[in-house]
Computed example of a mutant assay.
Amino acid sequence: MSEISIDIAKFLGLVLTLLGMFWGMSRRQQGMFEKHLDEKFAILQLRLEQIEKKEGDNGKEVARVERQLMELRADLPEKYLRREDYIRGQSVIESKLDALALKLENMQIREAKRD
């Protein structure tokens, strides 16, 4: 049987070398992972900024529409005539015309009696 003999110094050197390699590889993986996370967070930050910009634009648009709606509400009573109001106005005009026609008819009857 052949025995392999290694000095303790060489063994410790080998163990330390292997541990150093594992530590270096884990640090490299951690660095790559952090770089990947930083890239993802940068992309998310850009998207959030775009959303905030759109939100600001939407807020301005909503404010503009609300202002136009308030102007419409203010102008509506001046420009809009309800059907009932139109019918009431027409009824008043027609009753005045009927009264005028009745007066003319009465005048014509009086004139006819005089002759």
Results as ranks from 00 to 15, higher is better:
Ser2Trp: 01
Ser2Tyr: 05
Glu3Pro: 01
Ile4Phe: 08
Ser5Tyr: 12
Ser5Asp: 10
Ser5Val: 15
Ser5Trp: 10
Ile6Met: 13
Ile8Asn: 14
Ala9Lys: 13
Ala9Glu: 13
Lys10Pro: 00
Gly13Gln: 03
Leu14Pro: 00
Val15Glu: 06
Val15Cys: 02
Leu19Tyr: 09
Gly20Ala: 07
Met21Glu: 11
Met21Cys: 05
Met21Asp: 06
Phe22Pro: 01
Phe22Trp: 05
Trp23Thr: 13
Trp23Gln: 11
Gly24His: 06
Ser26Tyr: 09
Arg27Trp: 06
Arg27Thr: 11
Arg27Asn: 12
Arg27Met: 12
Arg28Phe: 13
Gln30Leu: 13
Gln30His: 10
Gln30Trp: 10
Gly31Thr: 04
Met32Glu: 15
Phe33Asp: 14
Glu34Cys: 00
Lys35Gln: 14
His36Ser: 15
Leu37Asn: 06
Leu37Val: 14
Asp38Gln: 14
Glu39Ala: 14
Glu39His: 08
Lys40Thr: 08
Lys40His: 10
Lys40Asn: 08
Phe41Ser: 04
Ala42Thr: 12
Ala42Ser: 14
Ile43Gln: 10
Leu44Asn: 09
Gln45Arg: 13
Gln45Asn: 13
Gln45Leu: 10
Gln45Lys: 15
Leu46Pro: 01
Leu46Met: 11
Arg47Leu: 11
Arg47Thr: 08
Leu48Thr: 04
Glu49His: 03
Glu49Ser: 06
Ile51Met: 07
Ile51Trp: 02
Glu52Ser: 07
Glu52Phe: 04
Lys53Ser: 06
Lys54Met: 08
Gly56Lys: 11
Asn58Pro: 00
Asn58Lys: 11
Lys60Trp: 05
Glu61Met: 12
Glu61Ser: 13
Val62Ile: 15
Val62Lys: 14
Ala63Gln: 07
Arg64His: 09
Arg64Cys: 01
Val65Ser: 03
Val65Pro: 00
Val65Lys: 06
Arg67His: 07
Gln68Leu: 14
Leu69Tyr: 05
Leu69Pro: 01
Met70Tyr: 06
Met70Phe: 08
Leu72Val: 06
Leu72Asp: 04
Ala74Val: 05
Ala74Asp: 09
Ala74His: 06
Asp75Val: 03
Asp75His: 03
Asp75Tyr: 04
Leu76Cys: 01
Pro77Cys: 02
Pro77His: 01
Glu78Trp: 01
Tyr80Ser: 03
Tyr80Leu: 06
Leu81Phe: 08
Arg82Ala: 13
Arg83Cys: 01
Glu84Ser: 07
Asp85Gly: 02
Tyr86Pro: 00
Tyr86Gln: 09
Ile87Lys: 03
Ile87Phe: 02
Ile87Cys: 00
Gln90Glu: 11
Gln90Val: 07
Val92Cys: 00
Val92Thr: 05
Ile93Arg: 13
Ile93Met: 07
Glu94Trp: 03
Glu94Met: 11
Glu94Leu: 15
Lys96Cys: 02
Lys96Ala: 06
Leu97Ile: 13
Asp98Pro: 00
Asp98Phe: 04
Ala99Tyr: 03
Ala99Trp: 03
Leu100Ile: 12
Leu100Arg: 12
Leu100Thr: 08
Ala101Cys: 01
Ala101Asp: 14
Lys103Cys: 03
Lys103Thr: 07
Leu104Asp: 05
Glu105Gln: 14
Glu105Ala: 10
Glu105Leu: 12
Asn106Asp: 14
Met107Arg: 10
Gln108His: 09
Gln108Val: 10
Arg110Trp: 04
Glu111Gln: 15
Lys113Asp: 10
Lys113Cys: 02
Asp115Ile: 15
